[in-house]
Write a protein that binds this DNA or RNA. Structure first.
Lengths: 374, 374
DNA sequence: CCTCGCGTTGACTGCGCTGTCAGGACCGTG
DNA sequence: CACGGTCCTGACAGCGCAGTCAACGCGAGG
């Protein structure tokens, strides 16, 4: 690595990298001006779509730009205008379906609003790493940041970061939230799933929980517990996984080993991938979905409808969450002059939708555990 | 939208946006210098890790930086140094598993090499749209671009773009390739899959092809055909899908309707999601995997091993492809002074690996079609 | 003692661009 | 013809930073 890494230990160079390393853009605005026979300022006007340039001059400049292959220098523009028109996305490095869908929505919305996107990924999502990621995004010129971190507590945005426009996306709000938040309606989704199962007659509904390092997993778990308790149903202690199909398989095996056969007649998985693993474990145990056990997922991955048993699941439109997050961030960035950080953090909840397919069905008559319906 | 969108029709403003819109960073290097009682240049030296600063002064500057919450202005730095240390990723907007895994690898590698990443997504991947995307990335300050476009022909990089450092990633090379290319070994993967099936005694191996708008789909299809023909086996005309489980389901239904039952004893799907759909279609037709039909996927998505019938598939490490792409791009960007674009385009192939699981098994004895083994 | 050289520091400059402001060309009106 | 107004254009300054070069202080060597 020959680059002068800022913050790195001092290289044994006198003062800077040896000159000659610099790669100045070949052609600058003055070159275009000379070619078009106008002043450099007029070129600037044409390129910025200013009125008050004669069409003929405009045309001449345009031609010169094309001929020379001129491209404006983003750095110089940003420097003089004091704005970069770039936003940052700081997110956990993850190939999860939801995450990528989400980032795509973010980028498209940013582009539509005239912003570029720099991405900074974090390896673990721990607070200090996220803070470094935000710093990095700002150093790359971001005017604001969308956080796509599953657990980060925005109250950690203290000190010099306190004034930074930040929107937390696709994660449920903390109490004492310090940033605007956009998320899908996790609570509503789980409640709807439980309601659906109860309507089908299930009285003992288990849960395959997601990792505790994801707030949304905790919210789903808490909501499941509350929904089950509110109906006076038995609470089977959930088994925890890590979103993966493997973990869903293992968790289900563990649950089946622990609970008497026939007691749990329905399972709510924290996401679709875990539900896939659960299906396999249930099949291996000789249990049929949905005749013996009903199964609900979360996410509605595209293949959910085409699994051997099409999966009932909660659809969340994470691309839309991304769009809304960008909209909020742009509002924060551009309205920075007015009420500033005075307003309390906003919470934007995007609706979800239960997709009922074949993996859920009526509870088996000879259901074991739970109390009889009231 | 109040921003002055470059290239947009001229707003009815006299010359530029009304001043007052600018948001200058609160604290600049001179402020730090004043607080630390040194010159601005010395602050610059400390922040760039230059030698020849007394430890005591260095410490004073560091403290002032922390106290004021100072952050260097990326635009000014880029302007004066002539380098942005940013690379662009221009890619098709897609939530496909492979794509996101790939971009994560890219970002991590870029960060490790001291580069930031700006992403620009394209909606369709058509050539002129991709070219605009590249332009956009360059206008955002990218010094080079990684193309993650499934079909783009790099020969279109003519004119002012001809000299741009570009690496095409995760797509198979065109003939007459104009850019360095990094890709997983599509050909080897399909060949290995066919070989595996032939070893198991299959004599009629069908293919569920991917969309023609993806070069990798075409390569997989071509390779499958060549491998089958080379062994003198029957070629069953493939059915085409679009990577989705739905399309895999529909393609398989179509194939089953078209071919006499028992003729095709093995299917190579263009990716794992299509294989999932195929499984469902086969099950609905009363065919068992792998007893009646063997099935091979491509990608090795994490849940492949936990499907009801664990899927035999070709694992490609797209994160690694991303890393190698960045490595190549950095080489191009930093070595721009030497051989320039003189060297012929490089082709970097990352090995793949066949993961044999339960979805493939010996060909049924009473296989219908195909020719007897020679 | 002076000189030399090194380590350390700061004044100045300019990167490429846009905002400001002033000036010229041209129109219509009094 | 003079005058004000409108439209168009260019000279100039300066955004925040790093490179250049000169100057300072100080210890070693002559």
């Amino acid at each position: 690595m020959t680059t002068t890494d800022p913050g790195a230990p001092a290289p044994a160079v006198v003062d800077g990298p040896p000159s000659g390393e610099r790669r100045a853009p070949v052609v600058v605005m003055t070159d275009v001006a000379r070619a078009a026979g106008v002043s450099q300022k007029t070129v600037s006007r044409v390129l910025n779509g200013s009125a008050h340039v004669r069409p003929e001059v405009r045309e001449r400049v345009r031609r010169a730009v094309d001929e020379l292959g001129y491209r404006r220098n983003a750095a110089a523009r940003a420097l003089v205008r004091g704005r970069t028109h770039v936003i940052g996305v700081v997110g956990l490095r993850s190939a999860l379906y939801g995450v990528s869908q989400h980032v795509m929505g973010l980028e498209r919305a940013a582009q539509a609003s005239g912003y570029g996107v720099v991405v900074v990924s974090t390896a673990t999502g721990e607070a200090d790493e996220v803070l470094r990621g935000v710093e990095r995004a700002l150093e790359l010129g971001a005017e604001g940041v969308v956080l796509v971190e599953p657990y980060f507590d925005t109250r950690a945005l203290r000190g010099p970061l306190a004034g930074t426009p930040v929107v937390a996306a696709a994660r449920s709000a903390h109490e004492g939230q310090r940033a605007w938040t956009v998320d899908a309606d996790q609570v509503g989704g789980v409640e709807e799933a439980v309601e659906h199962l109860v309507d089908l007659g299930h009285r003992c509904i288990g849960h395959l929980a997601g990792p505790t390092t994801w707030r949304s997993a905790l919210v789903r778990e808490r909501t499941w517990r509350a929904a089950v308790e509110a109906r006076g149903l038995a609470v089977v202690e959930p088994v925890r996984g890590d979103w993966s199909a493997r973990s869903g398989y293992e968790a289900t095996c563990e649950l089946l080993a622990r609970e008497p056969r026939g007691r749990v007649t329905a399972l709510v998985a924290a996401n679709d991938h875990m539900a896939v693993g659960a299906m396999r474990a249930l099949a291996e145990a000789g249990l049929s979905v949905p005749d013996d056990v009903s199964l609900v997922g979360f996410d509605d991955v595209p293949e959910a409808a085409y699994l051997p048993v099409p999966l009932t699941t909660v659809r969340q439109d994470l691309a839309l969450v991304g769009e809304r997050a960008v909209a909020s961030l742009v509002e924060l960035v551009e309205g920075h002059g007015r009420a500033d950080a005075g307003d309390e953090p906003r919470l934007d909840v995007v609706p979800v939708e239960l997709r009922v397919r074949s993996s859920t069905g009526p509870a088996p008559r000879a259901a074991g555990g739970g109390r009889p319906p009231t």
